[in-house]
Design a protein around this nucleic acid. Structure first.
Lengths: 352, 352
DNA sequence: CGTATCCTCGTTAACGTTCCAACCGCACCT
DNA sequence: AGGTGCGGTTGGAACGTTAACGAGGATACG
């Protein structure tokens, strides 16, 4: 008897060999019982499973990983915290992804790029990916920020690294990697149609700079709905930065000039700015001027009366991403290169 | 020449043996060059490092994990998404944790408990931990939700599983695991003092149910500051649920009875409710009634004028957690069982 | 010039799993 | 009787790394 127990060492989990001995079979048979149960005679299978149960055996992931070259880990780069809407969505997205991955037998491995500094070079950006790839730590990546002309997808493609993107390859339409995205245009169209249905005629748009593909996409939804309804859009659109202040100033300009009865925004951030503008003028959102945002952030939910907002189906996105990843890793022919999902509209007080 | 190139197979990373061959040394020497560089003659070291550089070699994590029994992965259970403040903090916390872990050479492995249903049993709750532990997938855990009488810490302790908690062992003061927490009382005291400094005399408190340890802790800070300033607190405290509506109703009651000049809340959620109440009465936050929240959520930042709020030093928390974890895994005697960090106050328009 | 000493490097053997090929017993067929 | 096929099982090898130990060369000293 030793005095080792004084150290409270963590338990040593049983191995395949332990199970084999207990069940009176060879190691390989236990392995088969787990990975190819139909290879065993029912009687043997039962005996092995009983042994597994009794010992509480779980395959050692490191050993399995080393042998099969599959870590069952998916890498996700957490983009540096910045604007609040991005984060709001990110949080929900990560949740959804963890859930979807779990059901597919995968876990999520988080990493961050570079030293957190904003002055991150392109090389820093891919370093995180590179390290994980070279050390075979993950089976694949899910890439989220495809919008800023990031070199990631390009780099990963050239590297033949398995990955799926959340976001269309806007700048590189001939990229061949699988992707999943949300149809921003359809979302805004939904929002605009919602306002048209409520009798609004002069519906304004506050969006982002022309250089933003996502911004252009969302704006297209507004234009489409307005055109379909035969409403003119002259002077009703503004392009500003994605900040609360910019949204407020844009609303001020619109309310002083074309006097829209409703305003659709490219983001909740800007929409909150609009709400500020309304409050300063003693106008009631929903009653005097309808407002719709985009992202269904936490802010949209707690603002007085609530802010109507386009809600991305992130749970669906996560499921599709994982599905695409599974197909990719199984080398199955994944017919659909891209999947486009339609958002919903969370209707609240700000739209009447 | 084969036609294999048509399949775009991912690159096969170089191994230790490849590096060894290129450098003209044995495998072990390369291993030493990485893990114990001072064992090599400078000249040899240089040669090996050059080979590593040229080949872009990274140790295979699976093999290293298998051999050393260290995955360099930290498990974090993502609690099911619920209230918005919890998430707001969670997001920042995960970010901070990824960053802190990275600097310590660790990665974060996310998992979720049970089948996502709210009716999660205690057994479901620990299943995620159990699986990862048995499969030796992670070196340790960081446990976040220690407040709800969760069986996790208890269970992990009995299991001798390495973990560090974010949150004090409220119910089990004799728990011996390391923990890091934020001094909520000190934070609220800071907020209350801030209001006292601005000349407020009747400062009310809106908090949570008496059963919440965290709620009691935060309330204690308010009581302390008020007592130190010699202000009475009779009738100035309310206990309600942690929702916007509850906060609004509580504010209504207070404003109709004791008419406080300032209100401190146990959360931003409740504080937003207070803002709603003020708005409905045509009162200006900051000018007519000061309001302070807790958590410095995204909402606090975009509310008109801004909401003054207690901000938890989550970046510091993450650093301390990782530090404790390193000590734990190195079996170093970690002198401080618990670390208590003091929050700061993010002052905005709602407090004058 | 031989020997003790130090330092550097190489050899062997694991870690726990799965792949591969072979093996065995048995039924079936010729 | 002997071959053939087949489902079920087994032992050996390999995945890439590191711990432990042992061999060898350089150096210093007598």
């Amino acid at each position: 008897m030793t005095s080792a127990s004084s150290y409270d060492a963590p338990l040593v989990p049983p191995t395949l060999a332990d199970v084999a001995e207990r069940a009176g079979v060879s190691r390989q048979t236990v392995s088969n019982a787990i990975n190819n149960p139909d290879l065993l005679r029912p009687q043997t299978l039962e005996r092995v499973q009983a042994a597994i149960q009794e010992l509480g055996y779980r395959p050692n992931r490191a050993a399995r990983h080393l042998r099969t070259r599959a870590s069952h880990l998916i890498g996700l780069r957490l983009p540096p915290a910045q604007e609040f809407t991005a984060n709001a969505a990110m949080d929900r997205f990560v949740h959804a992804l963890v859930e979807a991955s779990r059901e597919a037998g995968y876990h999520l491995l988080l990493f961050s790029g570079g030293p957190g500094k904003p002055e991150t070079t392109a090389e820093d950006l891919v370093r995180g990916y590179d390290d994980l790839l070279r050390s075979t730590a993950v089976d694949a990546f899910i890439v989220t920020d495809t919008y800023l002309g990031n070199p990631q997808t390009r780099w990963l493609s050239e590297r033949h690294a398995p990955f799926v993107a959340f976001g269309r390859p806007w700048e590189d339409p001939d990229e061949t990697h699988p992707w999943v995205d949300v149809d921003g245009a359809a979302g805004v169209e939904l929002a605009t149609q919602h306002l048209l249905d409520r009798g609004h005629e002069r519906i304004a748009w506050i969006g982002w700079a022309e250089t933003s593909f996502i911004g252009q996409d969302r704006r297209a939804g507004w234009e489409r709905a307005m055109a379909a309804a035969g409403r003119p859009t002259d002077g009703l659109a503004v392009r500003v930065a994605d900040t609360v202040d910019a949204g407020r100033e844009a609303a001020d300009v619109l309310l002083d000039s074309v006097r829209p009865s409703a305003i659709v925004c490219a983001s909740d951030t800007q929409a909150v700015g609009v709400l500020h503008s309304l409050a300063a003028r003693g106008l009631h959102p929903g009653r005097d001027v309808a407002v719709v945002g985009f992202d269904d952030s936490q802010v949209a939910q707690v603002v007085p009366g609530g802010l109507t907002s386009v809600r991305q189906p992130l749970e669906q996105v996560a499921i599709e991403l994982v599905r695409a990843l599974e197909a990719l890793l199984a080398r199955e022919p994944y017919d659909a290169r891209g999947v486009l999902l339609v958002p919903t509209l969370a209707v609240r007080g700000s739209s009447g």
